[in-house]
Amino acid sequence: MTERSGTIEIHVDADACPVKDEVYRVAERHRVKVFVVANGFLMVPRSPLIERVSVGSGFDAADDWIAERARPGTIVVTADIPLAHRCVKAGADVIGPTGKPFTEASVGMALATRNLMEDLRAMGAVSGGPKPFSAKDRSAFLSALDVAVNRLKRAGFGGASP
């Protein structure tokens, strides 16, 4: 488990994550442990820093695994707003795949907006989903993840043991 002055961990909500390769690159550069959490099997690079966690097919099983381990020193990568909310409350840094950080100040509004849009879609008032993922989003994510790792290092958290 990660504690203040412990190691930095990155937990990836991986089933639909478009930035896994970027996470692996940042993790290798900073020597940070990554947990790639998914409901099914996913290929991950062979590295002592990268661990695949298959949680089975239970509803929200991946979210629960991540949320139970979220704490200061943990960076969570997810587009799932309810999961982001749970992890922010636990003290983790949370970053969406587009590089948007979820904070105490932003996650409540994001959750309310998500719920409103879900209701509007259910009534047929709104259709469609998010805009397509772009190269600009990928670049913003890389920058946000690098900033988060460096901020945690300055706060006294370290990388993985050699």
Rank of each mutant, 00 (worst) to 15 (best):
P48T: 12
A105C: 02
C17W: 03
A61W: 10
L142G: 14
F35E: 02
R151Y: 06
A92E: 07
V37Q: 05
H85I: 00
I75L: 07
A105L: 13
R69N: 08
P162H: 14
K100V: 14
G128I: 06
L142Q: 09
D137Q: 02
V32A: 01
R86G: 06
E22C: 09
D63E: 14
A140I: 00
A122K: 15
A105M: 10
E22W: 09
P130D: 15
G96I: 04
L116Q: 11
D64S: 14
E118A: 14
L42D: 03
M109N: 12
I50R: 00
T74Q: 07
S127E: 08
P130G: 11
M117D: 00
R25Y: 07
H11S: 01
V94D: 02
R121C: 11
T113W: 15
R138H: 03
F41Q: 06
P82N: 11
M123T: 10
G40T: 10
D60P: 02
D80E: 10
R86D: 12
D13I: 04
A155R: 11
C17I: 03
A105F: 04
P45S: 10
K89D: 13
E28M: 09
M117G: 00
D146N: 10
V76K: 02
V147N: 07
G128N: 07
R4A: 10
A144R: 05
G56Y: 08
S57F: 14
A84T: 02
V149Q: 00
K89Y: 05
G58K: 08
D137M: 02
V12N: 06
V37R: 04
N39L: 07
G58F: 13
G129A: 13
T98F: 12
F59P: 01
R151L: 09
M1G: 09
E104K: 15
G159A: 07
E9W: 11
V126F: 08
V32G: 01
G40E: 14
V19I: 13
M1Y: 04
S106Q: 09
S139E: 15
G96D: 08
W65R: 02
R29F: 05
D13L: 12
E9I: 02
S139M: 10
R151T: 12
D15V: 15
P130H: 07
R138I: 03
V147Q: 05
F133K: 05
D64Y: 11
G159L: 09
K131H: 09
F59D: 10
